[in-house]
Every structure is written in structure tokens, then in C-alpha cells.
């Protein structure tokens, strides 16, 4: 059966391959998708060009803004030396250990208190008070008690990261669907099995959000501790470079921490995607 009725339309019909572009009404449909990798590369190239040319052409004082080539050369040269990697190692060690301790403590406490609402009610006021206290307030105490020992760094990192993850775990545990919980009960799942199959999967996305935030904040505090307290690590190196007036080296370290931050972000997101493969927010993202 044919439903066609051929007659010349006003627009006289488009070419058969349908390549005619629609009028550029500002509609989501008429917008062509930009070539993201190309544009992104363009953006980076633009930044590098600006950073190179501005000091060279005298738009900014070269003494304080060395051109990017000089900074990268300094970074490349340092990256072949052992102290560079030692500093990076110290920073990462404090970060990873602190994050790990915070994660373990937050999961344990979060699940324990999340499962005992009566007990949790007693902790809410304390948590609400302690949580917004900036972890850097602990710096003087850490210096007095631990000196430049790694435990100073750990104290700051753990304090900052713990709350971020803990709060998320509590949200997650509170978010368990009562229907799912009752279903699990009606099928005779025990307490541990319910935690394993109902509570844990519900909490996981929240936990990963907390971990993602804590990973970034943990790096900040790990470096802060070295900057202020002088524990060995990247922060300490930057202080030295600054006091020695090595401008390009300060920039080189900043670039290095940026790269470190990017690597950590990418790593945590990859982990998040892997852990939450089954989750809609991740599936949707992958499809987009």
C-alpha cells in the first residue's frame, strides 16, 4: 500500500542524500556536534602559545612569568633526578595512606551508625559541628605533637577526607529502598546478606562520590602539610624553590602538581566507572 502523494513542495524537496542543512534555528537538533578532541587540542595549543608569547613579547615581565618552554625544560630536567621522584613519592604516600585510612574508617563507622539510627541520632550534632572545621586548623597541633613526621600529613589528610566520605556513606545507607529491603527480608536474606546485596550496592555510588571528592581534597592537604609544616614532599620542594628565587622551578612544580592532579582525577573516575558499571548514571554517560 502506498501512502505517497508526490507533488512539488514549496521547498522543491531536498537532495536525495538529505545533506541539505536545516535553517540554523537555535535548536538542539540543528546544532552539529563539535569535534571535541580537535577543539580541545586547539585550546591547549592556544594556552601554550599564549604562555610562550606573552613573556617573549614583553606583555608580562619575563622575570615572573617565564615562557612555557623554559618551564617545561626545567620540569623535564628535574624529572630525570631522584629527588624529584622522591618528593612526588612522599606526597603520594601521604595522600594514599591518609585516603585509605579515611576510607576504611568512614565505611566502618558509616555502616555501623547507618544501621543503628537510634545511636546515630546522638552523633548528628557532633558531626555537624566537626565537619565544617577546616582541617588546616589542626596544623599547629600537628606540628607540636608530630613535628615534620608523616603523621602530621596523615592527620590533616585523614581529617579532611573522613568527613567527605563518611557523610556520603550515611546518605547512601539512608537511601536504601524500603521495598528492596522488605523484598530481601521476605526472601529470608540474613543481616549480612542484606548488607551485601541491598545496602552495599545502594551505598556504592554515594561512596564513590565521596571518594572522588576526597581524592582531590586529600592531595591538596598532603601538599599543604608539606608547604606549611615542611614535611618532605612536593610542597617542601616548592617552598625551597621559592625561597631560592627559582621562578621557573616554582612553575615547573606547579605544572607537575597539575599533571598529578589530572592523573588522580582520571584514575578515580576510571575506578568509579568500573565499580559502578551497572549503574544508570554511568551507563547513560557511556552511551552519550
Amino acid at each position: 500500500m502506498s501512502t505517497t502523494h508526490t507533488r512539488d513542495t514549496v521547498a522543491a524537496g531536498p537532495p536525495p542524500d538529505g545533506t541539505r542543512r536545516p535553517r540554523p534555528l537555535n535548536s538542539a537538533f540543528s546544532r552539529t556536534a563539535p569535534n571535541r578532541p580537535l577543539l580541545g587540542a586547539l585550546g591547549i595549543a592556544g594556552l601554550l602559545a599564549l604562555w610562550e608569547l606573552a613573556p617573549r613579547l614583553g606583555a608580562v615581565p619575563e622575570r615572573y612569568f617565564p615562557p612555557v618552554s623554559e618551564v617545561l625544560a626545567t620540569l623535564a630536567e628535574r624529572a630525570t633526578t631522584a629527588p624529584f621522584w622522591e618528593a612526588v613519592g612522599h606526597t603520594l604516600y601521604g595522600w594514599a595512606l591518609g585516603l585509605g585510612i579515611a576510607l576504611a574508617a568512614a565505611i566502618l563507622l558509616g555502616f555501623a551508625l547507618g544501621a543503628a539510627p537510634r545511636l546515630r541520632a546522638f552523633t548528628t550534632s557532633t558531626v555537624d559541628f566537626l565537619r565544617p572545621i577546616p582541617s588546616v586548623a589542626l596544623i599547629p597541633l600537628a606540628v607540636l605533637v608530630y613535628g615534620t613526621d608523616i603523621r602530621s600529613t596523615l592527620l590533616l589528610v585523614v581529617y579532611a577526607c573522613f568527613w567527605l566520605i563518611y557523610i556520603q556513606v550515611l546518605y547512601g545507607v539512608a537511601d536504601v529502598d524500603p521495598v528492596a529491603e522488605q523484598t530481601a527480608r521476605s526472601y529470608g536474606l540474613g543481616r549480612l546478606a542484606r548488607i551485601r546485596y541491598v545496602v552495599w550496592p545502594t551505598t556504592l555510588p554515594y561512596l564513590m562520590t565521596g571518594l572522588r571528592l576526597a581524592a582531590a581534597v586529600g592531595l591538596i592537604l598532603s601538599i599543604t602539610a608539606q608547604l606549611i609544616i615542611g614535611s618532605p614532599g612536593i610542597g617542601d620542594q616548592i617552598t625551597n624553590a621559592q625561597q631560592g628565587g627559582a621562578v621557573a622551578l616554582v612553575y615547573a612544580w606547579i605544572v607537575a602538581t597539575g599533571i598529578l592532579g589530572v592523573v588522580i582525577n582520571i584514575g578515580v573516575r576510571a575506578l568509579e566507572r568500573r565499580v559502578l558499571r551497572w549503574h544508570t548514571s554511568v551507563r547513560g554517560e557511556a552511551a552519550a
Binding site: 521547498a11 538529505g18 541539505r20 536545516p22 535553517r23 534555528l25 535548536s27 540543528s30
Partner: peptide, 13 residues
């Protein structure tokens, strides 16, 4: 959407 002017038609008015 075409009638409402939210989307440009390929042909026609």
C-alpha cells in the same frame, strides 16, 4: 516542534 517554530523543517513551510 516544526509548527511551534522550535525546529527548522528541512523543507516546506
Amino acid at each position: 516542534k516544526c509548527i511551534a517554530g522550535l525546529m527548522a523543517p528541512t523543507g516546506g513551510t
